[in-house]
Design a protein around this nucleic acid. Structure first.
Length: 546
RNA sequence: UGGGGUAUCGCCAAGUGGUAAGGCAUUGGAUUCUGAUUCCAUGAUGCGCAGGUUCGAAUCCUGCUACCCUAGCCA
């Protein structure tokens, strides 16, 4: 069955906690997305980590929406999030909303005020910024910092009942304005936002900030190990401060940070991805060019391949950028022995078998994958007119090129030897068709061994071929010389291709079909539900070029 | 260094004082009716740099260097 998750430094921490009995024998993690966009491959890493870790230790993992900012969130995303997590193969212990804890958070805030550990500050945002100081200079105390507890209680109540407009007052933790850690310079823990919340409606017009809410959410749910990304390292002292002051101490959840995923030539910023969607550059979040889980799914990635990828790349604290080839290797590896091959040609070149009867079609048996007998054979039609792949013909052959070229004979996979006798061209000099002859003696399976041929290429019979609209999949965005991400024009090119007729899904489906050399083509339905992702044998060849 | 992190093969990454795992990529070779698949082989006297401790250091100490994060009423 599935092999156990590779262990990482987080597991070492958990092992130690288990040994020392910090949380008894309990391991409880959580995956806390903010519902403000679709999940992408970077989230997949977090999902695999959190759910995988829980599974490894027979613990639990919650799916929790971090919906503390009604202005930025949209409930329309929750369905996609749940679908993606399920599709990846994980089950959550509970599906929860941070907003369900608003009461508790409010009480916690009141408690801080009463302990004189929080105060209402009416500086405006610019003033607050100014008072905060800089990285190298200490900040200075807000004039509201020493207001009495009673005054703060009254002001906070005024915030709560809506007497302040947005931005006119905030609740701040009273910590240390001269702390070298900016997060500890009296961080804002509650702000006013007269905005309806999808869950709590208009009950609140004050909402907790992440730094205040998150530790409380974790503590309420009994999370033991709260895994997040590196940029929150500086927030950990605040995370711990909240837990301590609010009374979730000792044995508070432990925040552990790891490096977020970067992949070469792949944009992982939600902001940029959302921009592409909003600007109509792509067909929504599930456009196959997107690095979203939905996009990968539609592109033909399997959940297994993504899980394997996440496990293979490991978890560490060093910033790194994984080569996209590593992801691709995972799909190929997963697909190769569970998927039927399909002949697909791109940049098609017409081949006429001049000595083959007009209007005759015969069926040829082709082995899907000799190393995977269970995939069996399939039948492909052969006739007088064929398409072969543009890469399989060179008018002037390169060195060591042993595919088709004038005067050369090759085997058509599953069919006959053919020899290129002539090349006809259009007026503009481009190739019209290759005039070839076939040798009836050489049919596959006939046992012919009169002579050998160095190359074998694949083909698609022209009269039964299905023209498929595929877009060459390249990476949607690449970095230019200035290090900025720009749209890669190639990614938007539509190229023509022909395929075996049996790909009904492709034929009947107008959805985008993606094909990248070296991979496979598929569509969402066939790849994910029927598990019939099509390997394009074209793509499996490697280049003969240096 | 204001503070917090990270540095191990081209790219990820194990390693936690005992003499450098694994994956991807690469390059050879074998088999092959797809230059695919499969199989086999392939790489660090070396772990950012310089010193030190030790019988022994990627792992401990000292000092450097590079890169990342951090001054949202975002998460």
């Amino acid at each position: 069955m599935e092999k156990e998750m590779q262990s990482n430094f987080i597991h070492n921490i958990i092992d130690k906690d288990l040994e020392e009995g910090t949380y008894g024998n309990k391991v409880h993690t959580r995956f806390p997305p903010e519902p403000n966009g679709y999940l992408h491959i970077g989230h997949a890493k977090s999902i695999c980590l959190n759910f995988g870790t829980a599974k490894k230790y027979n613990g639990k993992c919650n799916l929790r929406y971090d919906d503390t900012n009604p202005i930025k969130e949209d409930i329309e995303y929750v369905n996609s999030i749940e679908e993606d997590v399920k599709w990846l193969g994980f089950k959550w212990e509970e599906r929860l909303w941070a907003s369900d804890y608003f009461d508790t958070m409010y009480e916690a805030a009141m408690e801080l005020i009463k302990k004189n550990k929080a105060y209402v500050c009416q500086l405006n945002s610019e003033e607050i910024k100014k008072y905060r100081g800089t990285l190298k200079e200490a900040g200075k105390d807000s004039p509201y910092r020493n207001n009495s507890v009673d005054q703060n209680l009254r002001d906070f109540e005024k915030m709560r009942i809506g007497e302040y407009d947005d931005g006119k007052a905030v609740l701040r933790a009273k910590i240390d304005m001269s702390s070298p850690n900016m997060n500890m310079r009296d961080p804002i823990i509650y702000r006013v936002a007269h905005s309806e919340h999808h869950n709590t409606g208009d009950k609140w017009c004050i909402y907790p900030m992440y730094d205040f809410a998150h530790p409380i959410e974790d503590a309420i749910e009994g999370i033991t190990h709260s895994v997040c990304t590196l940029e929150f390292e500086d927030h950990r002292p605040l995370y711990d401060w909240v837990l301590r002051e609010v009374g979730f101490w000792p044995n508070p959840p432990k925040q552990i940070e790891f490096a977020r995923l970067n992949i070469t030539n792949t944009v992982m910023s939600k902001r940029l991805l959302k921009g592409l969607v909003d600007d109509g550059v792509v067909d929504g979040w599930s456009d196959p060019r997107m690095p979203t889980i939905a996009g990968l799914r539609r592109r033909g990635y399997t959940p297994e391949s993504i899980r394997t990828f996440c496990d293979d790349i490991g978890v560490a604290k060093a910033n790194s950028t994984v080569d996209i080839a590593q992801l691709e290797a995972c799909v190929r590896d997963d697909l190769k022995d569970k998927v039927e091959a399909k002949n697909v040609v791109t940049n098609p070149i017409k081949v006429i078998i001049t000595n083959y009867p007009i209007d005759q079609i015969e069926m040829c048996e082709v082995e899907n994958n000799r190393n995977v007998p269970k995939l069996g054979n399939r039948e492909v039609p052969f006739g007088r007119e064929l398409w072969v792949d543009g890469d399989d013909f060179m008018e002037i052959p390169a060195k060591k090129y042993f595919r088709l070229f004038p005067g050369n004979e090759v085997r058509l996979k599953g069919a006959y030897f053919i020899k290129c006798e002539d090349v006809t061209k259009y007026q503009d000099g481009t190739i019209k068709e290759l005039l070839c002859t076939y040798d009836p003696e050489t049919k596959s399976g006939s046992g012919f061994n009169g002579r050998k041929v160095k190359g074998t290429i694949h083909f698609v019979e022209a009269s039964t071929a299905v023209k498929i609209k595929i877009r060459e999949y390249d990476y949607l965005m690449v970095k230019n010389n200035e290090g900025e991400y720009i749209l890669n024009e190639n990614s938007l090119n539509t190229i023509d291709g022909y395929s075996e007729p049996s790909i009904d899904d492709i034929k009947s489906n107008e959805r985008l079909q993606f094909f990248r050399k070296g991979y496979y083509i598929c569509d969402e339905k066939s790849s994910t539900e029927d598990e019939k992702v099509f390997n394009s044998i074209v793509g499996l060849k490697s280049s003969w070029k240096k």
